[in-house]
Amino acid sequence: MISFFKKNKNHPDFWKDYERKFQHKLPELIQDVRFVVLDTETTGFDLKKDRILCIGAVNLEHNNIEISRTLELYIDQETFNPDTVKIHGIIKNEDLNTLTEREALVTFLNYIENAVLVAHHAQFDIAMINHALKRLGLPKLKNKVLDTMVLYRATRINSNLIDQNKHYSLDEVAENLNISVKDRHTAAGDAMITAIAFLKIVAKLNKKDKGKLKHLLQVN
């Protein structure tokens, strides 16, 4: 405990608040766990150069998604980038509040607490967020992470006839799981589709209920 505080002496309060949330152990059963399903829109795929434009996230507890607890953050861009034009359009047209990267991260950490994070191709979204944290001189996210791509792959039967290492796009997963994809390509819309996909995948992986979180983490 002593070394724990020592190490973080210089971090701002919001980070300390966030860290403190992890003193509680996560519930054992999936149905009791709080998940935050998220998606980020970015200017590109370069972790160093590119920036997050928007973070969308939904809150998932007991098989329920509460719309009032949806998170949708739009981030100011320091430099002009042609890829950001579309999102600027949205911001301008709808007269949206934008945040600095720092404000967005503060809000985000305050929102996620110690929830298990879920995303499609999660590695990328998490890495983008971790790089943003790094720019503020902060450590990486401490949350457990689940990737719906990997989980979906585990629902496919184990057969030599299908490629075990195939990558499934969110569109493919949605089509196979019969999810309508009207909201594609907004961060919040994608987060919602991912959340529904996640629910369906978990149902497939745990036909007998009372599934445990650790089994999902093992798949990943």
Binding site: T70, Y74, T107, T186, A188, G189, M192
Partner: peptide, 12 residues
């Protein structure tokens, strides 16, 4: 921010 937020999903 929470209250001023846009909610794309609610719109859908």
């Amino acid at each position: 921010i929470y209250f001023k937020m846009k909610n794309t999903i609610a719109e859908r």
